[in-house]
């Protein structure tokens, strides 16, 4: 479980996050949605410690991460996997070396076991026979898959995904979303996904928080979101014609 309390963050006097609280449960796909510039990425970075919040704290299964010592932080981080927006694969390493990397530096498993594990996760994300390819030689969707494999290879308990399906065609985007959801349920991971994509919201939103201007304006799941009365959220979700017609059909039913 990931919990954060009263997270505040400002840059040069400009407040970006105005005190956010929430709780993300394991085995569920938790979504953070909101329009561009509302601080979703900043929140994610505060949660994994790439940025320090000015106030508030983030707890991983009750362990305070924000105010922890270096060593405790490092221990918690070994349980965190993250899929970056551009996948952030190490481009001087092959696919196999990329996925092997966390095992090499974080564990002292024997070599065979490591390779077995790498092949297992690569197979799990649907990639075979690309082990020796370089990141520049594979497609965007495949990079995302490798990124997911690398994020979960060390049996991560927490998985963060920053816009996992940006820049992908709708079909591949759906596959990646489904993969994240399956993995979350299969390994009981606490998954946090930042997304703009209404399709993933409707498909996989077990728990959704809607952010607007650094505040949490709404929370709930995908069965409740179309009935929201929050005007900002209505503007956000019904900006797409598709979702508007979905809502209409639901009303007719």
């Amino acid at each position: 479980m990931i919990e954060f309390k009263n997270i505040k963050k400002s840059f040069d006097g400009k407040d970006v996050l105005h005190g956010l609280d929430s709780k993300f449960l394991p085995g569920r796909t938790n979504l953070i949605i909101g329009s561009s510039g509302t601080g979703k990425s900043v929140l994610l970075k505060c949660m994994v410690g790439l940025l320090e919040p000015d106030e508030g704290s983030v707890l991983y299964d009750g362990r305070d991460f924000t105010h922890a010592s270096r060593n405790v932080r490092r221990d918690i981080r070994r349980d965190i996997g993250m899929l970056f927006q551009g996948a952030a694969l190490f481009d001087s390493k092959t696919v196999e070396q990329n996925v092997l990397f966390p095992l090499n530096v974080l564990t002292d498993m024997p070599k065979d076991e490591k390779l077995d594990r790498v092949n297992f996760v690569l197979k799990r994300v649907g990639l075979e026979n690309v082990n020796q390819k370089m990141p520049s030689e594979i497609s965007g969707g495949m990079k995302k898959r490798v990124g997911i494999a690398r994020a979960i290879v060390n049996n991560s308990k927490y998985l963060y995904c920053d816009e996992p399906n940006s820049g992908l065609d709708p079909q591949t985007a759906i596959l990646i979303d489904a993969l994240i959801k399956e993995i979350t349920e299969e390994f009981n991971i606490t998954t946090v996904v930042v997304t703009h994509d209404m399709n993933s919201v409707m498909e996989h939103g077990d728990y959704i928080i809607y952010m607007y201007d650094g505040r949490k304006l709404w929370e709930g799941d995908n069965t409740q979101i179309l009935d929201t009365t929050v005007p900002e959220l209505q503007d956000f979700i019904f900006s797409s014609k598709l979702v508007r017609s979905m809502k209409k059909m639901e009303n007719i039913k």
């Binding site: 994994v48 790439l50 490092r74 221990d75 981080r77 965190i80 996997g81 970056f84 952030a88 481009d91």
Partner: peptide, 17 residues
């Protein structure tokens, strides 16, 4: 610099390195 802007540095940090 390339590793930094393509978030590879962040990826290392998140792994606790």
């Amino acid at each position: 610099g390339t590793m930094r802007i393509s978030e590879q540095v962040d990826a290392l940090e998140v792994m606790g390195i």
